[in-house]
Nucleic acid binder design. Structure first.
Lengths: 209, 209
DNA sequence: TTGTATACTGACTGAACAGTCAGTACGTAA
DNA sequence: TTACGTACTGACTGTTCAGTCAGTATACAA
């Protein structure tokens, strides 16, 4: 296969393909170490074409974050709105949704945002406002629901949020960074199961003595 | 203060000063975006001097990781060796040790390693072997101790490890990245307290019915 | 088949920066 | 006070890469 692909004109499909290729490269090497030449090659086009759709490298980065992240937030919010079961079931649903996301490149986004927030405060703010603020409201809502229903003991809901999110964050970062370079490994499903089990026990109301 | 500091010769102190300045820069901007010229300025020397002590930028990075991280691992291991109390107390000690580390730049190291492991697999391996493997042994040892003593229920110890580490990782990353660019905030001490409290409840043996 | 609009290309430019090295000035010993 | 070794300097070099733009090839209309 040394024959170069002949040029084709596909104005509509390009942006999505470029963003997908860029996500893969950014996830692998980080923002600064990614060459747009390589992104172009991965997307099957030349470097100049990227600039027909994205004015700068930073704008491309912004588009990657936006495209990869928004659909999932919205889906999770829909889950909550449509579900009327127990808070425990909702936490289990969120865990399952995370495990599904872990199969894609999507979970590389937190790693990117964390790594580059010093250089691109605007992206950090966008992510914080668009993703995290909404995710926090979501989880706090579930926790409060559990307290109201008597499933959970009273607690500092905001301080409890990182307890839920932390282990998932660790799994995501592990997959996209250290997990690739060491034989130390975690089974995401086992960890998620242990996490939910332990958290639910930990949040349960005191036994009446 | 426009007067330039006159040259002084301090062969012994230089390496440490350079590493400290580099840690601050790397933590703020990441590896690739850090200019050695800036590190030099921060350390009060010129760029050439860095190359008297570190052959390349990557070697400097390696030195930063090594210097910032080894003393703490060893201190934590000493804690465990010298302590004969309950597993719960040991977990509380580890949490306290983490909170102390959070006051320094030290907790920027995980962010750096995670961000750059794709570009520097050797550093990722070094970190995994030198820090994480030992930290894992430490925590799993405490958990097993708790099971033996009847403080904790039987569990999959390896899958439980991320439950303990995750919330601390989240706090560390938050401090060095998103926390600086949004008004969303966490109180580390409140989170750590809620974490240990909830984890200990979650790991407690079943009540006899 | 020819003509036109435009998606696409890739060689080029300018800037930023890691790494070099000939020269400078400090400390110290005699 | 002088002379020597060396810690330190900073202008310079070579390379890498984001971003440009004149030119090319394709789709499509007439």
């Amino acid at each position: 296969m040394t024959t170069a692909t002949p040029r084709t004109r596909r104005k509509e499909a390009r942006p999505g393909e470029i963003v997908a290729a860029a996500l893969a490269s950014f996830a692998e090497r980080g923002y600064a170490a990614t060459k747009l030449e390589d992104v172009a090659t991965a997307a099957g086009i030349s470097k100049g074409t990227i600039y027909l759709y994205f004015p700068t490298k930073e704008d491309l980065f912004r588009a990657v974050v936006r495209q990869a992240v928004l659909p999932n937030v919205e889906a999770a919010e829909a889950d909550l709105a449509n579900h009327a079961g127990s808070a425990a079931d909702l936490l289990r649903m969120m865990a399952q949704r995370f495990l599904d996301a872990l199969d894609s490149d999507l979970t590389a986004i937190p790693k990117l945002v964390v790594a580059e927030s010093g250089n691109f405060p605007a992206i950090a703010q966008f992510y914080a406002d668009t993703v995290l603020r909404r995710a926090f409201v979501l989880i706090e809502g579930i926790l409060n629901l559990g307290i109201d229903r008597g499933e959970f003991r009273p607690m500092d809901v905001h301080a409890t949020l990182p307890l839920f999110a932390g282990p998932f964050l660790l799994l995501a970062l592990w997959k996209h960074s250290l997990g690739r370079h060491t034989d130390l490994a975690f089974d995401p499903r086992a960890v998620a199961a242990a996490h939910i089990e332990t958290l639910l026990r930990g949040l349960a109301p005191d036994q009446p003595t």
